[in-house]
């Protein structure tokens, strides 16, 4: 990189803009030769930062894979305990306190997503044999958002933590049995 161009640039720098500034701040038209140590430092920083990003990416990928594994277990458990092999289930993760608590909601009878009474099951704990333990749950009327004022017939942890805002099911609602918590079989 060093050559006549650099010499011109350096001379121009000394006579013009850069006459009163220290060497490191003088303008140059081309990079000076011999800036190998600077490039080495830059390369080292970029490579180290790249390694950090690579480790963070792989760590996040592994973490997300575990979360997906958990969510798949939630869906599988919901389908098993309800006996409904529905594809369109709503799944909500705990993004406020970052626990592994998930809520899966789905219709209690066949219909478009959210068009029937919804059964929402709360899952906690680790995945055991492809399934997760039910810690509680509640019901929602059709076509409403999953908010406290719409929830009824809470059971398990949903009841103990006061997730239900309605004291009774709406008129004409289908039966709302409490599901057994833990990894047990569905209620008869």
């Amino acid at each position: 990189m060093s050559g006549p161009m650099d010499a011109r640039a350096n001379n121009a720098g000394r006579r013009g803009v850069g006459a009163r500034v220290p060497g490191w701040a003088r303008p140059l038209s081309n990079e000076r030769g011999g800036s190998g140590s600077l490039r080495l430092a830059e390369n080292t920083i970029v490579i180290l930062f790249g390694l950090l990003l690579a480790v963070a990416t792989v760590n996040d990928l592994v973490g997300q894979t575990h979360v997906n594994h958990r969510l798949a277990a939630d869906l599988r458990t919901w389908r098993t305990v309800t006996g409904h092999d529905y594809r369109n289930l709503d799944i909500e993760q705990d993004i406020k306190t970052y626990t592994s608590r998930d809520v899966v909601c789905g219709n209690v009878s066949p219909g478009a997503p959210g068009e029937r009474t919804q059964l929402c099951l709360v899952f906690e704990g680790s995945v055991v044999a492809g399934k997760r333990a039910i810690s509680g749950g509640y019901y929602l009327p059709p076509k409403v958002t999953d908010a406290a004022e719409n929830r009824y017939s809470c059971f398990g942890t949903a009841a103990s933590s006061g997730l239900c805002g309605r004291s009774s099911p709406p008129a004409g609602a289908p039966p709302a049995p409490a599901f057994k918590t833990g990894l047990g079989p569905p209620p008869k």
């Binding site: 990003l53 690579a54 990416t57 996040d60 990928l61 894979t65 997906n68 594994h69 969510l71 798949a72």
Partner: peptide, 16 residues
């Protein structure tokens, strides 16, 4: 490449 790698969780553990 890292961005693409990060997309692959659904391939390693599909949710359906």
């Amino acid at each position: 490449a890292l961005f693409i790698v990060h997309q692959n969780a659904p391939l390693l553990a599909p949710v359906s």
